[in-house]
């Protein structure tokens, strides 16, 4: 449990992450589960006293609910079964999914593979920066043609 979650919790969480952000149909963008965001979520949970009980309780509830359907847990369930359980969880543990979804977005949309999938370099902006066209300053011709717009005083 290097992440701070037990193996069972990690497995369930990975599977839930893929439900929040599944892989894109064109294959350009990975699912959140396969990006290894469990460590990121674990770190966020440790830093947030408000989030921690909601996530731990939600995972526990999800494992209990899954156990009634499959001995292999949440990750072994069908797509529909997972959706049903997450819907149920939204009622029994209302803080779980919003908190987890927020943290998932934070981790996912900073990941180099995701940036590349969106068509931008998977690196920090500095030191390479980006090219940007100066643009057509001739568009200002109608503005130049207008009279001055300030009051003399």
């Amino acid at each position: 449990m290097a992440s701070g979650f037990s193996d069972a919790e990690s497995s369930t969480l990975t599977s839930v992450l893929d439900e929040i952000i599944p892989p894109s149909r064109d294959g350009k963008l990975p699912g959140a589960g396969e990006l290894g965001l469990v460590d990121y979520i674990a770190d966020a949970v440790e830093k947030s006293p408000d989030l921690k009980p909601a996530i731990l309780e939600g995972l526990s509830t999800l494992q209990d609910l899954s156990g009634g359907r499959s001995s292999d847990g949440f990750s072994a369930l069908s797509k529909n079964e997972k959706a049903e359980l997450l819907k149920e969880l939204a009622t029994t543990s209302p803080a779980f999914l919003p908190g987890l979804t927020y943290q998932t977005y934070l981790g996912y949309y900073q990941h180099p593979r995701v940036l590349e999938g969106l068509g931008i370099p998977g690196r920090p902006p500095h030191p390479k920066g980006y090219e940007l066209e100066v643009g057509d300053l001739g568009l200002l011709d109608p503005v130049r043609a207008r009279p001055k717009r300030y009051r003399e005083c």
Binding site: L132, E133, G135, D136, L139, P142, V143, R146, R149
Partner: peptide, 19 residues
């Protein structure tokens, strides 16, 4: 640089005749 974004918005201002 204006970039594509600046040009796009500049055309919008021009359409309305605004500074």
């Amino acid at each position: 640089p204006l970039g594509k974004l600046g040009e796009t918005l500049g055309r919008g201002f021009n359409k309305l005749g605004w500074h």
